[in-house]
Design a protein around this nucleic acid. Structure first.
Length: 240
DNA sequence: AACTTTGTCAACCGCCTATCT
DNA sequence: TAGATAGGCGGTTGACAAAGT
């Protein structure tokens, strides 16, 4: 009944302003409630999508650079159509943007790239090509288990066979410099956290270093305090 | 100049998973 | 523990613009 009244289609500037103000007030959470509170005739999903893909601060709207294109190519080679996962490696870019870019630009290039780079190699061989041998032991895991990998603070080696060496391929990329520039625009507290994590673990909360670091002061109120530090706007990206 | 084709991108849809009650 | 709800994700659609004929 109520849903029939919901607006669809392109967002108006006025709606963007209202949504931005409401998110600033309530944070990026409980989108259905947020949509109702805003007074917009939009679904929570629609609000979330508009925010995540267009209104969110620090989004890049320009052309995908050659560097970014290369990363997309390589990550797609490894992960397939895991757009949100790929987007996590490209700060300021959304999964939707990368997906669209892939469809319109990269699909053909990828076939050429695959042929030129890997020939008939399997996945394992592809990984080995992408990652220097000295870096194939990685400090990270994607299952959130911080008992695996290497903690860069304590130096403790938590390595296990659950690790994903693929991620390390980008730690020494020139792209890291660009990310640092991006982070430097943030508040000092937020920047400190992100710089720390980036240098160790390439922007992934599931990184052992990060979680181990968090665990040093682990208590029930920790996430609350992190919420306030991050002003909510980047918590999604990290907590996901 | 008019029409058709192709490319781009914002937005929606439906499914799946996580969380809440 | 089960059902309801919210959020996240990948696939798809459709409007619009640019390029081609």
């Amino acid at each position: 009944m109520q849903e029939e009244k919901l607006r669809k289609g392109p967002w108006l500037e006025e709606e963007d302003e209202i949504l931005t103000a409401t998110v600033a007030l309530l944070g990026e959470r409980r989108w259905d409630a947020l949509a109702k509170a805003s007074g917009l005739s939009r679904s929570g999903k629609s609000c979330r999508l508009r925010w995540m893909n267009y209104l969110r601060p620090n989004l890049k709207h320009g052309q995908i650079s050659a560097e970014e294109q290369q990363i997309i190519l390589q990550l797609h080679e490894l992960w397939g159509n895991k757009w949100s996962r790929i987007a996590q490696r490209l700060p300021g870019r959304t999964d939707n943007e990368i997906k669209n870019y892939w469809k319109s630009n990269l699909r053909k290039k990828a076939q050429v790239h695959e042929q030129e780079t890997f020939g008939g190699l399997g996945n394992k061989a592809k990984q080995n090509l992408l990652i220097p041998e000295c870096e194939r032991v990685t400090p990270r895991t994607h299952n959130g288990d911080f008992t695996s990998g290497k903690d860069c603070i304590s130096g403790t080696d938590y390595s296990s066979d659950t690790l994903e060496p693929l991620d390390f391929a980008f730690l020494n990329s020139p792209y890291e410099v660009r990310l640092s520039d991006w982070i430097s625009c943030w508040s000092s507290e937020k920047s400190e956290i992100m710089q720390h994590q980036w240098h160790c673990c390439s922007l992934d909360l599931s990184c052992s270093c990060y979680t181990a670091w968090i665990s040093k002061d682990s208590d029930d109120g920790l996430w609350d305090s992190l919420d306030s530090i991050w002003d909510l706007d980047y918590s999604k990206m990290m907590i996901d």
